[in-house]
Design a protein around this nucleic acid. Structure first.
Lengths: 236, 236
DNA sequence: TAGATTGTTAATCGATTAACAATC
DNA sequence: TAGATTGTTAATCGATTAACAATC
C-alpha cells in the first residue's frame, strides 16, 4: 500500500463515510458482482470460516485475485496484508454497500401465476425483502388470500405505500399493462421497481429500475448452445 | 463501406455460413443485447413497420446508432445504406443467431412453487421453448397434473430425454439439491441448464449454463436506490 | 441527383490483469 | 523474522463512440 495516508486525506474518507463517499463512481460491472460476493461470503460465514484471501474468494467466483481486490477496494480497505479478509466484517460491509443491512418493504403488483410464485419464494425474505402487500386490478382476485396476505385493489396502493412504508415494488403484470401500472405507482413515493414484464418501462429519473425477462434467459441459453455447437463443429 | 469485397473474401463468408462463421468471437455483451433487439423487432413487426434505421432502433433500446450498427455487423450485412434494416429480414436473422428459429424441447426440473409458475408462464412458448416434461423427486408430487403435464419421477428423466428429444432443462429446485440434481441430469445428452437455484453449478464444459438468482435482482435494485440516494444527497 | 444511412476504421473510453511496495 | 497477501499503479485488453467513404 503505497500511500494510505495521502489517499485517506485526499478524498476525505473517514469511518462510516467510506462507502457513501465512493458509491457514486463505481463501475456498473462491479456493483453487479457484489451480490455474488455476498452469496459466497454468507456461505463461508455459515460454515464458520474466519478469513478468506482474494485468491480463494476469486476461485469461488471465477474471478482473478486481482479483480477481487480491485472490486473491494472501490469501497474501502477491508483486508489485511498477509491475512486476507475477515469474513464477518466483509459480509457486513458488502451488505451495507448493497443497502441490505436493513429491511425493505416491498409491494407485489400482480397476483397471477408469476406473482404467486414470487410471493412464496423464500429467498427474498432471507435477504431482507419483506413483501407487505399484494395488489391486483382483477376484481375476482381482490380479497383472496395468498400466503399470509390478502390481495388488495390496486386502487388502494397510494394509501398503503405510506402506511406500510413501501419503497420497492415487484411488477408481475402482463406486458400490455406494465407501463400503465407503472405510471400509476410512480407518483406515490416509490423508489424502485423490479420489472418482470417484457417491456422497457419509461420511468421518472428518480425511480430505479431492474428488469428481468425470463424468456430472454432461455434465449441466452439457446444462443450459448447453438454457438458452442457451431464452434465445436468447426474446431474439430 | 470501404471494402466489402475484400472482407467477404478474406474471411470466406458466403450465404448461410455468414452467421456460423462469425458466431465464435462475438463479445459476450453483444450477444446479451441480441435478445433485446429481438423483442423490439418483434414489436415493430407486429405493428407492420417495414424498415428501421440504426438510430431509431437505438433510441428504443437506449443504445447509440453506432453501437447498433456495430453489433449487427458482427453477424453479417443486414442493412441498406439510405434505407435502414428490413424488419422482417432482421428479425429472422436475429432469431437464427440466437438459435430460436426452431423449437426447443425443455424439461422443467422441480415442480414446487417456482416450477409451477415457470410452467404456466406464457412467454417461453411464444419464443419457441416447449416444456415437454416436468420432473420432481418428491413422491407426493409425482403423478399430479399441472397444466397439461403429469409430474414425473426424476428417475425417469434419462429415458425421457431421448424419447422427447429434450435439449434444455430449467432447474427450479432448492439450492441444497441443485448440484446433486444437475449431476444426475448431465450425463444424458442435455445441452444447457437454466438454473434458478442460488448456487454456482459445477458442470461439464460441454453443457451451457445461464443462472438467474431472483434475490440478486432485488439486491441490485436496493443498491441502485441506496447509492442514488447518497449521490443525490451529496449533489444538493 | 441529393439526402439518408449503412458498414468499417481509428480514436476514445473503461475494465481487467500484472506487478510490486507496504504491511501483517 | 520470513511468507503471505493486501491496495495501488501502470500496462494491457476489450468495448464504445465518432467520423466518413460507400451506397441506396
Amino acid at each position: 500500500m503505497l500511500n494510505r495516508e495521502t489517499k485517506a486525506e485526499g478524498s476525505a474518507l473517514a469511518g462510516d463515510e467510506t462507502v457513501s463517499q465512493l458509491a457514486a463512481n463505481i463501475p456498473k460491472t462491479v456493483s453487479q458482482r457484489l451480490s455474488r460476493y455476498l452469496r459466497v461470503l454468507q456461505e463461508l460465514s455459515r460454515r464458520g470460516q474466519d478469513t478468506i484471501s482474494s485468491q480463494a474468494l476469486g476461485r469461488k467466483l471465477d474471478l482473478s485475485a486481482a479483480q477481487v481486490r480491485k472490486d473491494l477496494a472501490y469501497f474501502g480497505q477491508f483486508g489485511s496484508p498477509g491475512v486476507g479478509y475477515e469474513v464477518q466484517h466483509l459480509t457486513a460491509q458488502v451488505k451495507r454497500i448493497l443497502g441490505t443491512d436493513r429491511a425493505w418493504n416491498v409491494a407485489l403488483i400482480g397476483a397471477g401465476r408469476l406473482g404467486n410464485a414470487l410471493l412464496r419464494y423464500q429467498g427474498f425474505e432471507e435477504q431482507g425483502f419483506r413483501i407487505v402487500g399484494v395488489f391486483d386490478r382483477a376484481q375476482e382476485l381482490i380479497g383472496q388470500e395468498i400466503g399470509e396476505l390478502k390481495i388488495l385493489d390496486l386502487e388502494s396502493f397510494p394509501e398503503l405505500v405510506k402506511e406500510q412504508n413501501i419503497e420497492l415494488a415487484i411488477l408481475a403484470v402482463p406486458a400490455t399493462e406494465a407501463q400503465a401500472v407503472a405510471d400509476f405507482l410512480t407518483p406515490h413515493g416509490l423508489k424502485g421497481i423490479l420489472n418482470f414484464a417484457p417491456v422497457r418501462l419509461n420511468l421518472p429519473e428518480t425511480i430505479q429500475r431492474v428488469e428481468v425477462d425470463l424468456a430472454v434467459q432461455l434465449q441466452q441459453l439457446s444462443y450459448l448452445v447453438t454457438s458452442s455447437e457451431l464452434s465445436r463443429r468447426r474446431g474439430s
